[in-house]
Amino acid sequence: MSSNGEANLNQEELIDDLRNVLAETESMLKEVASDGTEQGRALRAKIAANLSVAKDKLVETERLVAGKAKVAAKVTDEYVHENPWTSVGVAAGVGFLLGLLVSRR
């Protein structure tokens, strides 16, 4: 498996984990909304822990996405420097097609 495929898989796993943590947190929050007992305080502590985990996962996901964006920018920059006229031609073609689409409306 390529490193890009592994990064996509890791990113998807992180997003799924984050969704699960947030869903569990919402459920617990509904349970303890009006509970002032010892159990309620324990649940609030668990909610705080879950939110901390969610924040950590979010930071990790952000780091992965930023890393992938940097790699993509670097590869694009290298390609443009190695093939300037091809890049100009592609950009002109895309601009022309977008112009046609916009002018039809």
Rank of each mutant, 00 (worst) to 15 (best):
L14A: 14
L14K: 13
L14G: 15
I15L: 13
I15A: 12
I15R: 14
D17Y: 06
D17W: 04
D17E: 12
D17V: 02
L18Y: 08
R19L: 14
R19G: 03
R19W: 09
N20C: 00
N20V: 06
L22F: 07
A23H: 05
A23T: 11
E24Q: 10
E24F: 03
E24K: 05
T25Y: 00
E26I: 00
E26C: 03
E26T: 10
S27G: 07
S27D: 12
M28A: 08
M28F: 05
M28E: 05
K30V: 08
K30P: 00
K30A: 15
V32D: 02
A33M: 10
A33W: 02
S34Q: 11
D35L: 07
T37I: 10
Q39P: 02
Q39R: 14
G40L: 04
G40P: 01
G40I: 08
R41V: 03
A42D: 11
A42G: 04
L43Y: 01
L43I: 10
R44Y: 04
R44I: 05
R44K: 15
A45K: 12
A45N: 11
A45I: 04
K46T: 03
K46D: 01
K46C: 00
K46Y: 06
I47M: 04
I47L: 05
A48D: 09
A49I: 07
A49S: 11
A49V: 06
N50S: 13
N50H: 12
N50Y: 06
S52F: 01
S52R: 09
S52H: 11
V53K: 04
A54P: 01
K55C: 00
K55L: 10
D56V: 09
D56W: 02
D56R: 15
D56T: 13
D56N: 14
K57P: 03
L58S: 12
L58A: 12
L58V: 07
L58E: 07
V59N: 09
V59F: 05
V59P: 00
V59H: 08
E60K: 14
E62H: 08
R63W: 03
R63Q: 15
R63E: 09
R63T: 15
L64Y: 03
L64N: 07
V65S: 13
V65W: 02
A66M: 09
G67L: 02
G67Q: 08
G67C: 01
G67P: 02
G67R: 02
K68F: 07
K68Y: 02
K68A: 12
K68R: 15
K68E: 13
A69Y: 04
A69C: 03
K70T: 09
K70S: 13
V71S: 10
V71L: 14
A73V: 06
A73M: 07
A73S: 13
A73W: 02
K74H: 11
V75D: 11
T76W: 00
T76G: 09
T76H: 09
D77I: 01
D77V: 00
D77G: 10
E78N: 12
Y79V: 05
Y79H: 09
H81N: 10
E82S: 14
N83P: 03
N83G: 00
